[in-house]
Amino acid sequence: MSTPTSPMAHIPSTFHLASIEEDEPGAKWQALFDAHWPPYQTWFLSEGERARPGYMTSLRNLRAYMPELLSTYDKLVDLAGGGDLAARFLSFYRPPPYLLGCSQAVWAGPEPALIRNYDYSPILFEWALLKTRWLRPVIAISDCLWGVLDGINDAGLAVSLAFGGRKTTGDGFGVPLVLRYILETCDNVREACFVLRRVPVHMTYNLTLLDRAGIFVTAYLAPDRKPRFVRSPVSTNHQDRIEWPAYARMSASIERRAFLEERLADPSETESRFVNRFLEPPIHRIRYERAFGTLYTAVYRPTEARVEYHWPGHRVLQQSFASFEEGLETIHLGEATIGKVGVGHF
């Protein structure tokens, strides 16, 4: 997630994606918390401590909307030291606002796939891929230490998120925790849609969901509107219309969506070529100085319960429930600088 604005700082050219397997929260998760808690704490308090809900409010809402997660939440809070601030942060109820990019699409067919680019600042990313068995087996890219940017569970349900292109905020949860809840408790798209109808989110998001039966949906979520579910295989960073023109121009949301829709409508397009589109302009982005560069391309394959991670000019990292290898994957994104981008604020 985002942290407050910072002065000019150099972005390293090399990063390491850590693949971590830990069935129950333990020493490995605690090490992840220790490494990332200082910048998360700064971000969490960026609008002042009183702007964030208190512990009892956070706990009450978590119990009301996602009670199945309470046991795991309690374990994580204990590993984080049991402090009030960490407990409030880990509830992920009404966190500060943040921005991110992302392009998402479903390749339909006998072997459907959910393909997505995650566009963000590399120095604000956790660089952690977790395989867990908290309520069930889940493989997911981590965010906010137990939330999910995209992932898949053992039933073959895959989901990913993108910012929805509106400034509006409200009462609700940060969507990465909602994605975690979906993967921990749902078997298919239908069940996930029931969750999204009742769990409030604090910002506008676009979710893409795909299950083993090939059922897919794009979910348009917002804190001030009822969720909408559309049979669109593509989503970027707007919903039915452009509601934040400056952001849409900066992110090229319209152009990216139109490009992917055109490729899917082309009868000569192949799956491998379509995946490669995500590694090239205009879908692959290099605007790291604006916290809007592509950090990875993920290809989730529900029928095989596995995922691939791609980078331009790099070998493909493959992980699955049957074969998950812990370790560090060295990623070269190229040299860049980051200025006062304000990614945590509107």
Rank of each mutant, 00 (worst) to 15 (best):
L124C: 09
N206T: 08
G174V: 00
V230G: 09
S2D: 13
T185M: 11
R116G: 12
V138H: 06
M56T: 15
G313S: 11
I123M: 12
D211Y: 00
P223F: 01
I141N: 00
D171I: 04
G174A: 09
A113L: 05
N237I: 07
D240T: 11
E304G: 05
V234Q: 06
R241Y: 14
N153L: 01
E271I: 02
C102K: 10
K28L: 15
S13I: 03
T14L: 09
I286C: 12
I215T: 12
S160L: 01
N188G: 11
W311A: 06
V234R: 05
R231T: 09
I115F: 03
P267Q: 07
E304Y: 09
V159G: 02
F321H: 03
L207V: 01
S268V: 03
L328I: 10
D211N: 02
L207F: 00
S19P: 05
V341H: 01
Y98S: 13
E184M: 08
F321Q: 04
N237L: 11
E255G: 08
G54R: 10
R225A: 12
F321G: 04
S91T: 15
Y120I: 09
V343Q: 04
P110Q: 06
A291T: 03
S58T: 15
Q104M: 14
I115C: 09
D74H: 12
T330M: 12
A305N: 15
G342S: 06
A213P: 01
D224V: 00
E329P: 03
I115Q: 04
L196Y: 02
Y181W: 13
L62Q: 08
L85N: 00
T330Q: 13
M203T: 07
Y288A: 12
G344W: 07
I242Y: 00
P223C: 08
S71G: 12
L179P: 10
V138W: 02
N276C: 08
E304I: 05
N153Q: 10
Y98C: 07
T294K: 04
L62E: 10
T3Q: 07
M66V: 07
V343K: 02
G172K: 02
L317M: 09
F274Y: 14
A252D: 11
A162E: 02
F33N: 02
Q239T: 02
V275I: 15
L79R: 04
D240S: 14
P38R: 04
S251N: 12
D154Q: 07
L260A: 11
A252T: 06
P233S: 08
E191L: 11
L145T: 13
F173A: 02
T57M: 06
D224E: 14
L124S: 12
A155R: 14
S232C: 01
K75C: 14
A87K: 08
F292P: 08
A265S: 15
I286W: 06
D187R: 06
R277M: 00
A298E: 05
Y55M: 10
M66R: 09
I152L: 15
P227Y: 00
T14V: 07
T72R: 10
T169E: 13
D119G: 09
R197H: 02
L32G: 11
L59V: 15
E21K: 05
A155G: 05
L135T: 05
G214L: 13
S91L: 05
